[in-house]
Design a protein around this nucleic acid. Structure first.
Lengths: 272, 272
DNA sequence: CAAATAGTGTCTCTAAGACAATATCAC
DNA sequence: GTGATATTGTCTTAGAGACACTATTTG
């Protein structure tokens, strides 16, 4: 008849084999390109943060920021820490994307990764100075359905082009996972992680859950619409977007200035 | 100048501290209660599988089935294995629910759990004989929103009643996580896992992703409607449900028999 | 004024919900 | 026939998409 106290005293956790645990984070940002015409608004591109690996394995390939879980922290804290280290910015939101545990996914051994998606506003990244380290870069995303269940994922940064092809495998449940058919220049199974994170991002954008974090506190409805359009890769009529989004925002009394056209009212996200 | 091969040869994974990794699975089933009237259909209740813990810690509390990840398997395989061991049935679907890694969640030490939700049909469970072990039981679920962000979770099996209160904490993203305010009779943080799994289940039921797995291959539309109503805890008009579901099912030429009323056509899930 | 974005009004079409009516079985 | 579920038809209403129009700024 042993008490719980006695049990725990004699319990040796080392008796079980344990894997190493990492987190990988797909940090998304929407980047606005410069315009040639002073009157025209800039175009937007969805981008994801990648790190050029300086060490084996996958040396010189690009990988998602991530690292080993340290004792005393949650996986969420670990994920936020990694993003902070690379960008100087603490992301507004963090979403679990899935577990990646297929044996052999990491040549170093039994390493399991919990993946997250996070969103960072371009403004906050700029404030912290464009991280001059050449090994951390924002890659523009081109993500496209190709055929019945295949997806194309193209990531580009300057001359660097990463290309992956993935097949969607229905998990039986709503959520789907991806199998890598081809992955050029991307380390580990990170192409699948990015594809899964993108699916989650789009899913969240459907009900406007994930779009606000791309923008600063106060924003114009047009900017918000651009975010939605960029993520979903669609085009929306302004009148319709404004009608639908009106339940989720509150007006401020501030306006944009000096844009070469009519000023736009600034809005805030409506709390709850 | 070392090659990747050399690097891996010298790499010692043991240099890093590692947690133990478990999976916990919330297996859902819809149970039909016996009716008094031969003409009336039976009522349905959503239920979840719990195991009475025979060992410390949380001895004599009820817990989700789960266990330690073993080398060479994925967390999904581990989750399926656990359910199979307890029910004899391989679940039709498995959905990742989240990672639970808060320090102190398991008194045995640094133990991190990847949680899953799965769905089992009542028919398949019955075929494998009502698992006579008294330590594994299906608990009826009563899940209700209470106030702004609190939820009540009541689990009952015969005389045994487990009661938990949880607070929803928005993860900033679409998905939400739960903080346990009170948890009576449930081991570890399993009340939060069940609540998260229930949210995922309901989310998946919205677009009919998760409802088919509760039923056998061929089913009546009324049975399918009962599943939807039971999960969402709502009531739907048959005419409207049939109109919406028609895109997701295909008719067979078979009908139910001897039910005391008009026979119902059997349907199958439409592939893709 | 020209060019560009900001913002509003309204028409149409579709989908969801409510409700009514009919069909068919076991007893 | 009675009581139950099965199944179809249609009216009404809310919401999404399309489109036309007005407003306001900078150069």
């Amino acid at each position: 008849m042993d008490s719980e106290k006695d049990f725990l005293k004699n319990y040796r956790i080392e008796d079980y084999e344990r894997p190493s645990l990492t987190t990988d984070v797909a940090a998304f940002m929407i980047r606005s390109e410069e315009s040639d015409n002073y009157k025209k608004d800039s175009k937007s591109r969805l981008s994801v943060l990648l790190i050029k690996r300086g060490a084996h394995p996958y040396k010189d390939s690009w990988a998602l920021p991530g690292g080993f879980l340290t004792p005393g922290e949650t996986v969420e804290e670990c994920a936020l820490r990694e993003i902070k280290e690379e960008t100087g910015v603490l992301p507004a939101s963090l979403m679990p994307v899935g577990v990646f545990s297929k044996p052999g996914r990491d040549p170093r051994g039994w390493i399991i990764s919990n993946a997250f998606a996070s969103i960072i506003s371009e403004e906050s990244v700029k404030q912290h100075g464009g991280d001059d380290a050449a090994d951390a870069q924002w890659f523009d995303i081109w993500y496209e359905r190709k055929g019945r269940s295949d997806y194309l994922l193209d990531l580009s940064f300057g001359e660097t082009l990463l290309h992956a092809v993935l097949t969607e495998v229905s998990g039986g449940f709503g959520r789907s996972s991806f199998k890598i058919k081809k992955s050029g220049g991307l380390a580990f199974d990170h192409a699948a992680i990015i594809a899964t994170a993108l699916s989650a991002l789009r899913e969240g954008a459907k009900n406007y859950d994930t779009i606000f974090d791309f923008l600063p506190d106060k924003f114009t409805l047009t900017a918000l619409q651009r975010v939605q359009e960029t993520i979903m890769n669609i085009s929306i009529l302004p009148a319709n977007f404004r009608r639908k989004i009106s339940d989720y925002v509150v007006e401020t009394e501030e306006y944009t200035q000096g844009a070469g056209h009519r000023p736009a009212r600034l809005y805030r996200r409506k709390s709850l």
